[in-house]
Design a protein around this nucleic acid. Sequence first.
DNA 1: ACCTGAACACCGTTCAAGT
DNA 2: ACCTGAACACCGTTCAAGT
Lengths: 184, 184
Amino acid sequence: MRADAQRNYDRIVETAREVFREKGYDAPLDEIAKKADVGPGTLYRHFPSRDDLIDAVMKAWVDSVTEATDKALAREGGPRELLLGWFETYVGLISAHKGGPAKLTGAIGDKDSPIRSKCQVLVSSNRRVLDRLQADGVLRPDVDEVQLSRLVGGVATVADQSDLPTAAVRPLLEVLADGVLVRS
Amino acid sequence: MRADAQRNYDRIVETAREVFREKGYDAPLDEIAKKADVGPGTLYRHFPSRDDLIDAVMKAWVDSVTEATDKALAREGGPRELLLGWFETYVGLISAHKGGPAKLTGAIGDKDSPIRSKCQVLVSSNRRVLDRLQADGVLRPDVDEVQLSRLVGGVATVADQSDLPTAAVRPLLEVLADGVLVRS
DNA sequence: ACCTGAACACCGTTCAAGT
DNA sequence: ACCTGAACACCGTTCAAGT
């Protein structure tokens, strides 16, 4: 890649990160181009679709997902506390930007999505949590990681679109936790 | 209201119903104006926002919600079957048009939304179902109708945005049902 | 009073002309 | 090879001119 192309690429991604943080993933792309001091054609050349740009912005985010999953799995307490802690972590991870929950959860299972790899990271994290619960024998036998991603993602999507405070999200996650764990 | 105004109003609503059915609630408004043979200003005069138009289109839908709730409550079987049947009915009711689940579920609790009354109908229906389960003593004590609307609405939103088949939605609703009912 | 449709604003997308 | 920015398309919104 030519030096000026690389520079423009980096400027666009960096600017997009800022604009997305302020206005969410639906922010106008031409605002990003303007702030990054590139023509709209340049942005379009590097990122043919909005999701391609979002995917690039999320490169670093992948590591924080893995890290946060490790942390959630290392927490003290019973399986219900573990699961609830993970749910809140998960909601936080996908809700960092407005519109994130819908975009990430909606793309689960879509093999052609530009953000496919990001969804896989999320689903894998849920798989890890399920493995742990399964080993403890407290998991409903017929729940898989994709279902769990959609359930928690659904709650996060509603919370994002209704601007719900954490206090209103928590009871929804508790219902999910009770539904996922075995009756005791 | 003048005769021609009334005629235009009706034509717009009728046309919108068709276009929304085909393309979902995000369909271009000017397409509706064109098909209804009115100027864009006329549509805008009658319906200042998209949601005002959606609200008008949903006038008849309200009755079908009440009807469907009656039917779901009259069903034979245990509380889990009742609840699951209701969940599937509910998802069907709000998923009639693409974009419906997100719009209806996202507006719950928003006192300024033009479709506020439609949300209240949905929440009330969930209240009726909860009343029934409560009377049977099978309900978790700390679940209310708004939470339930958001939980099932969240699943419907994800299903709508990922184009999930009914078979993939069912297990998600089962987790919700188990989370809402008391341990036994 | 209501309607029309031109006009504007906004934003994504393309492409001919540059370097 | 890559960039620029004018141009176009699309769509929501407004408003002066009509009836």
